[in-house]
Amino acid sequence: MLTTGLAAVSTAILAMNRQLQVREVLQTIVRSARELLDAEYAALGVPDDRGGFAQFVVDGVSDEQWKAIGPLPRQHGILAAMLEEATPQRLADVRRDPRFGGWPQAHPELTDFLGMPVVEGEEVLGALFLSNKRRPGPDDERGSEPERARRPGPDDRSSFTEEDEALLGLLAEHAAIALSNARLHERGRELTIAAERTRIAHELHDAVAQKLFSLRLTSQAAAALVHRDPERARAELQEVAVLAADAADELRAAVVELRPAALEDDGLVAALRAHVQVLHRAHAATVTFTAHGVRVLPSPQEEAVLRVAQEALHNALRHADADRVEVALDRTSAGRARLAVTDNGRGFDPGEVRRAGRHLGLVSMTDRAAGVGGTLTVSSAPGEGTSVELEVPGG
């Protein structure tokens, strides 16, 4: 069984390491542990510093059952022992343990119990536990499907073995690594978002502050000319209207960029479509989006595609004087995801832009592409519009 179990652990470890979001890692750990040791229920709690759990993930319980159980458990009883003592807990019947404090009415009935702390260094990251190990049937080591499918009574279950404990311990060690990596990834994303917001704040201050200063001077000039030179005053007021409209556009664009994209909840296609719809409503230009054949991409690729699209759209709408911008997401014949942002604006000479020291976000877009193993191509010429194409692996 141990050899078979090690192969299953290897499969579970690979599954955990494919995930980059903490919640996904927790769910993979719990699901893998339950399948590995053939238990009816599995759960993993990540403690907070207030005696409760910041996250609590279960497997083997339906959504309806989970809602009926009620609030998350507190750190007490055997769960507290795992967190405080960082020691495994293997019990024939959890209900007979002196630390058992009961459970809510809708909670499933648990008997035999195997708990394992998830530890990194001296820090206990979580408490992983299984309950109600299924009893092997007479047909083979794991039992026939009807035997395994039925819900046995308390006296009909075998307890978890030392081999089970060893396998769960091995899984918990790798779970700690996967969970730590996911936390580092999310922290890195938070820092990236913070840096992006700081950049936008600086841009907003520079652009809008300058326009508001010009707006103030122009309005003062108009006021001074109202009686002495009405025609010039009228021209100055028209300039006030233009400056006010420009400032409003700057603010709208900043709000759009500051709004967090729903990549985690909705995925890349939905996030891009929502972003394009907002820009279409906020600007005079027609902004369209199409998507064909793109599967779910790894999180870094999805974020890179979204950010490049945002930068390219920013350039098209604020600098190119375009009245039509098309955003397309599709799949190449080589199986890569391809983003294309094309506008019919004034265009530019890429060589001249580089010589003048202006970047139009080209450096950041190129860096984002390179960071996920992708390539960025920018095609433009004066009077002929601009096309930005990004290809990333994993489409």
Rank of each mutant, 00 (worst) to 15 (best):
V61M: 15
R358E: 05
A304V: 14
L128E: 03
R358M: 05
L14P: 02
A337G: 08
P117G: 04
I29G: 01
L170E: 10
P136L: 08
A370R: 06
E40P: 01
P98V: 03
R228Y: 12
H107S: 11
S380K: 07
G383Q: 11
V61C: 08
V119G: 06
R295H: 12
V242K: 01
L317V: 02
L114M: 10
A312N: 04
A334Y: 05
E384R: 12
S333M: 09
D156C: 07
H202N: 06
H202I: 03
R157A: 03
F56Y: 15
G153A: 08
Q55L: 12
Y41S: 05
A340E: 15
G385P: 11
S144Y: 02
E165F: 00
R346D: 05
A166M: 15
V256L: 14
R151K: 13
T286G: 01
D59C: 07
E109R: 14
L44M: 15
Q220I: 10
S144G: 15
S379W: 03
L251T: 07
E147C: 09
I29N: 05
A80T: 03
A39T: 11
G347T: 13
V46G: 02
Q75D: 03
R216K: 11
D249F: 02
V296K: 14
T161W: 02
A207R: 14
S144N: 07
H76Q: 09
W103N: 08
V208C: 00
D155C: 04
S62N: 05
H359F: 05
G143W: 05
Q220A: 15
D246H: 05
P138H: 13
L251Y: 08
A92L: 11
V124C: 13
A233G: 15
E391G: 02
I177P: 01
H283G: 01
T366Q: 14
V378D: 07
Q19C: 12
L20K: 12
S380V: 04
L217R: 11
D206T: 06
L297I: 04
D321W: 09
R259D: 15
